[in-house]
Amino acid sequence: MALSAAEVLSGLAEIVNDETGIANDAVQLDKSFTDDLDIDSISMMTIVVNAEDKFDVKIPDDEVKNLLTVGDAVNYITKAQG
């Protein structure tokens, strides 16, 4: 069963926390991965792969560059769940 956007946000925050140590509640929809959360390109890819596993979705390499904010990622994952 597809998760809600809030559930995806919560799960994504756990993944970000695992990779970077950033507090879960700092991972908010309007935050930029690079500018606000200071996540580099390699950590971003680790987060993407872990999100694919956790949410059972595919996030192609070409799509990663479009995921600028946490909200972008939550929207993409929510829709990709079908």
Binding site: S41, I42, M44, M45, T46, V48, V49, D61, V64, K65
Partner: peptide, 9 residues
């Protein structure tokens, strides 16, 4: 870099 990282790991 990102594509290679994903593949390489």
């Amino acid at each position: 870099g990102q594509s290679v990282f994903r593949w390489a790991v």
